[in-house]
Design a binder for these strands. Sequence first.
DNA 1: TTAAGTGCAAAGGCTTTGCGGTGCC
DNA 2: GGCACCGCAAAGCCTTTGCACTTAA
Lengths: 142, 142
Amino acid sequence: MERFIDRCRQEGLKVTPQRIAIYQVLMGSRNHPSADTVYREMTGTHPTISFDTVNRTLLTFAGIGVINTVESYSGSRRFDTETEPHHHVHCVKCGRISDFNDLEIDALKVPERITREFDIIGHRMVVSGICTECGKKMMRDK
Amino acid sequence: MERFIDRCRQEGLKVTPQRIAIYQVLMGSRNHPSADTVYREMTGTHPTISFDTVNRTLLTFAGIGVINTVESYSGSRRFDTETEPHHHVHCVKCGRISDFNDLEIDALKVPERITREFDIIGHRMVVSGICTECGKKMMRDK
DNA sequence: TTAAGTGCAAAGGCTTTGCGGTGCC
DNA sequence: GGCACCGCAAAGCCTTTGCACTTAA
């Protein structure tokens, strides 16, 4: 939290109660929330905050690297509170995203043809599949 | 084309002039178009087609696996005409997506913890970076 | 003090839905 | 002839923008 405040100051961002509250919610959730999810998680404890502030703050945080935006297959923008390199599994049915780590994948090199054409920032494995819950649901529906 | 028509019949889809036209446009473009891009590519040759038909048809095609939807970081849904497994590089500035192939990456195994939790469909490396053009542009703007 | 941030409201994109008319099978 | 499909229009999300008020520094 100290470090978050320092980070804001360092970036010339004001440390407002809203930003602190949003940051706390983010640190408390190990998911990949949308702006709306974060907003609804806060309405209980911070009834006066507006959705716009949440959304704008998330974009601001993503801009300074406190969080990241996540690749998605549809719908609304998702954020990631885990800023260390890692990998994702998407459930194609419910959209749930899970993290995983894998040193072998981390160590992979991108082909030279690509490094010539792009300044590489990072890479991530994106796995798609069907999660256990959705699998069960599909069995029931059949 | 023959195979496309067979595929439609097989799936119980009617073979309409619109679907044929959209399929032709898709096969002619090696990009990762949005519905709007496909639509605008067609207005010259097929002035009477509606955006909705294009959009719905793309979703239909994606549903039967003729094309795929692509992971994206914002904005509109993008489609992929390449249905064989391959990998992607995203330019974080302009949103351009390039394909690449890599047998080593193809062969990677997903950790067992994940295979227990998900029925895996496939995996893809998603690289992010800045493309040459955007790099130049940033130099000029500085 | 003042520039940045907030909240509200409206506008803007993109996607989805409903429905009457059309055309493939 | 029936049912899927098309085109149009409206509605629904989500995101972005503009502006006046507030507040951290």
